[in-house]
Each structure stands twice: as structure tokens, then as C-alpha cells.
């Protein structure tokens, strides 16, 4: 067991345990903070897979952006009168049965399928390669995503504004 494996099990443990806590704790604010650890663990897994740029983007966009947005959503949609912000669950027993079967099936598929497995030697930094490939092969998707982000921002601002003009 070399150092790579030890680090993998560390990050995978952080990711899975806090991911389980996200869906099992009652308090929504606690769930949001467990989501923080899950996202950090996933960023660590990206680094282990040789995707350094994606890991940084993950931390900047998810931890710095989406998680803050979600916390704002929690704060703004609960009466702050009570300190405990609880969230109830429903249909838990059928969900556990169904998702248990689904999880078992997925893990079984992942383990038994004979995946093509030739490990690619990914260069030490991928930023330059990613920039080149985005601006050549994926230029159309890149431009469309820019337009989509603009539309999403305008749409979010329009939906959430107070006074309808």
C-alpha cells in the first residue's frame, strides 16, 4: 500500500462519510457544512486523478459560490425565530429499500464490468492543454455556455426581484 492509496482512502472516506451525513442530518445548516467537506474531498479525488485545474475550479465555484448561495437560500427561506432549522423527511422506508437496491446494482455493475483500463500519463499541469482544447475543439460549446450563463444571471435577477415592473 503506497502513499497514493493511503491518500485516496483518506479523501474517499471524507467524501463518503460527509456525503452520508449531508442526507441524514436533520439540521439544514449542518447539512450545508457537511456538503463543504464532501466538495473538498471530491476536489482531492480530482487531484489524485491528475486534474489539477478542475480541482481548483471545483473549490472556487462550488465551495466559494454554490455553497454560499445554498447557505443564503437556507437563511432566507426559514423563519429565524427558532435556532434549530429542521427539515423533515417523508417516504423514508420505501426510499431506503429502492435506493439500497439501486446502490447495490450500481456498485455491482461498476465492479464486474470489464472496463477498458489503460492508464493515461496525464502531464503535470493540465491548464495549458485544457485552454488549447477548449478554444479549438470545443469552441462552440464554450461560446454557448457563455451565452447560457448570461441568460441564467439575467433570469435569476428577474425572477428574484421584489417589484414587478
Amino acid at each position: 500500500m503506497n502513499i497514493y492509496d493511503i491518500i485516496f482512502y483518506l479523501f474517499a472516506g471524507i467524501t463518503i462519510i460527509s456525503g452520508f451525513l449531508v442526507v441524514s442530518v436533520k439540521n439544514i445548516v449542518h447539512a450545508a457544512f457537511y456538503l463543504l467537506f464532501t466538495l473538498f474531498g471530491i476536489a482531492g479525488l480530482y487531484v489524485l486523478l491528475g486534474a489539477d485545474f478542475i480541482a481548483i475550479v471545483q473549490i472556487m465555484v462550488y465551495v466559494g459560490g454554490i455553497l454560499i448561495l445554498i447557505l443564503f437560500g437556507v437563511m432566507l427561506t426559514n423563519k429565524i425565530v427558532d435556532v434549530e432549522i429542521k427539515s423533515e423527511s417523508f417516504q423514508v422506508i420505501p426510499a431506503i429499500i429502492f435506493i439500497g437496491i439501486l446502490m447495490g446494482g450500481l456498485v455491482f455493475l461498476m465492479v464486474t464490468t470489464n472496463w477498458e483500463n489503460n492508464e493515461l500519463i496525464i502531464p503535470l499541469t493540465t491548464t495549458k492543454i485544457l485552454g488549447n482544447i477548449i478554444l479549438t475543439d470545443y469552441i462552440l460549446i464554450f461560446e454557448l455556455l457563455g451565452i447560457l450563463l448570461l441568460i441564467a444571471l439575467i433570469g435569476a435577477a428577474t425572477i428574484a426581484r421584489k417589484d414587478k415592473v
Binding site: F20, V22, I28, L45, S87, S89, L106, V107, M110
Partner: peptide
Amino acid sequence: IVSALLFSFGLFAVVTRKNAVM
């Protein structure tokens, strides 16, 4: 396997939680 477990947890949150933020 890590990804399959995370997917199952996410689906569990989507089908059981009442709060839209969850």
C-alpha cells in the same frame, strides 16, 4: 464506487427531503 455511492446519497436526498434547498 465512490461515485456510485455519492449518486445514491444524492438521489436519496432528492426523493425523501421536504425542504427544497435540501
